[in-house]
Simulated scan of single mutants.
Amino acid sequence: MRDLSTSSTGARSQSQAAGDPGDDALLRRFAEGDADAARILTDRLGPRSFSVALRLLNDRAEAEDVTQEAMMRLWKMAPDWVAGQAKVSTWLYRVALNLCVDIRRKKSADSLSDVAEPESDAISATEHLQDAARLDALQFALAQLPDRQRQAVVLRHIEELPNPEIAGIMDISVEAVESLTARGKRALAQQLAARRDELGYADG
């Protein structure tokens, strides 16, 4: 499988250079048999879906499976896609989100205390142990949030999507997105506050 661990921000900047076709056009070209369009869309959208799935599931293999399944569903519906009805990326995020929810639901019997530590290669894009520890702490704290709060926080503050797009992905109002992200941020701050010294954060 293609390496999907590229940061979503980097993927956006590299794949959407000036003059690149839009997602709608690429999906239409794929439906007409253009294999290159599929490759471009995979390079553009795959890392973003993987990033979301990894943050929500905290499991690299499962995140890869979710990304593959979401892309397969995109290819299957390509002939029926109506340009302008929604953003392709929004549709794909929603599918990935729902797949993650299904996986977590199957694991619902597991205790939160049994949440697996992140794999080192899934979070380690840094040469500094302290930075790795901070990412580890953030991932663990995210895993403790209620599902909807975690989804909203990941989409807003890690993927940096606008609230209206998140509302479309999660099928809730913009006000509900704002409430979920605010509560999620407060909960994260409370969990991480106790580890400020350990993680090397200066008092502020």
Rank of each mutant, 00 (worst) to 15 (best):
R156K: 08
W91P: 05
R134D: 04
G168F: 03
R134H: 03
S13W: 14
A17M: 06
D24I: 01
A133D: 07
R48K: 13
R28T: 07
V82W: 01
P21D: 15
P79L: 00
R29G: 05
L112N: 03
I40D: 02
V66T: 09
D65A: 12
T181H: 07
I40Y: 01
S173E: 11
S179C: 05
R104K: 10
H128S: 11
F140I: 08
D110G: 10
L138S: 11
D3A: 05
A83I: 02
E62I: 07
Q149Y: 01
S179W: 11
L135I: 04
A37M: 12
I169V: 15
G10R: 05
R183T: 10
V95E: 01
S89R: 13
A182W: 00
L188P: 00
V95D: 09
A189H: 06
A11W: 12
K76W: 04
K106C: 02
R73S: 06
P47W: 10
Y93T: 09
A96C: 00
A25F: 05
F140S: 00
G204C: 07
L26N: 09
A116D: 07
A125Y: 06
P146R: 05
G184H: 00
S179V: 15
A143T: 00
V88R: 08
L129I: 15
S173V: 02
L54S: 15
E117I: 00
K106H: 01
Q191T: 14
D197G: 15
E69R: 04
D203V: 08
V95Y: 10
E165D: 14
D43V: 07
A125L: 01
N163H: 09
L138Y: 14
L192V: 11
S49D: 03
D171Q: 14
I158H: 11
V154I: 06
L99P: 02
M170F: 01
R2V: 11
P146E: 08
K106P: 01
A63Y: 01
A61H: 01
P21S: 13
R104Y: 11
G33C: 12
R105G: 06
K185R: 15
G204Y: 02
F50S: 02
W81S: 06
A96L: 05
H157V: 03
P79T: 04
R186V: 05
I172H: 00
M1H: 13
S5H: 14
T126Y: 09
D36R: 02
S120M: 09
M77P: 10
A83H: 03
Q16I: 03
S7K: 10
G168E: 09
Q85C: 09
E178H: 08
A78H: 09
G184S: 10
L199E: 09
V82N: 10
R183Y: 14
V153F: 15
A61V: 06
T181K: 10
L199V: 02
Q68M: 06
D110V: 09
Q190M: 03
D65H: 10
K185M: 08
S7R: 15
T67G: 05
L74Q: 11
I169Y: 08
V154Q: 12
